[in-house]
Nucleic acid binder design. Sequence first.
DNA 1: AGCCTTTGACCAGCG
DNA 2: TCGCTGGTCAAAGGC
Length: 129
Amino acid sequence: MSEASSTRETSMETHEEDREEQDTDHRRGQRLVLPEDGHEWKKYGQKFIKKIGKFRSYFKCRKQECVAKKRVEWSSPDNLRILYEGSHSHASSSSIQGTPSSSAANQYSLYAQVFGSDQPPSRPHHQHP
DNA sequence: AGCCTTTGACCAGCG
DNA sequence: TCGCTGGTCAAAGGC
């Protein structure tokens, strides 16, 4: 109800690089190894998108002040796509990777989409079998 | 005990 | 108009 989902503009599209890191988290069941981006995420849902034939996990930033969201699609533990939505207004939890925040303080909602490498950013129209 | 994760169900939007 | 999908929330369980 009190969802402050207002700033939803797709005016900014930044392409970042997704890296796969091997985490020592090898619990039983099906725990996918997600590449740490230096932020904490809370998984709040997982669904199978038959449209793409892949699983999609939904993550939200742990920070209430942070409206950043993250979604991970994977068809295989070795083939996962990470999509970052929104931007973090707080410093990264981990001091890994040098956050290119030197550009300027982003006080606006950034729309960062990280694609794997087999998904062209330009999509004319639908094209699914 | 606490924290995080997982699954199901519900809702909304669109074709 | 209905159906379907995608997305989110809630609750429960497990470690």
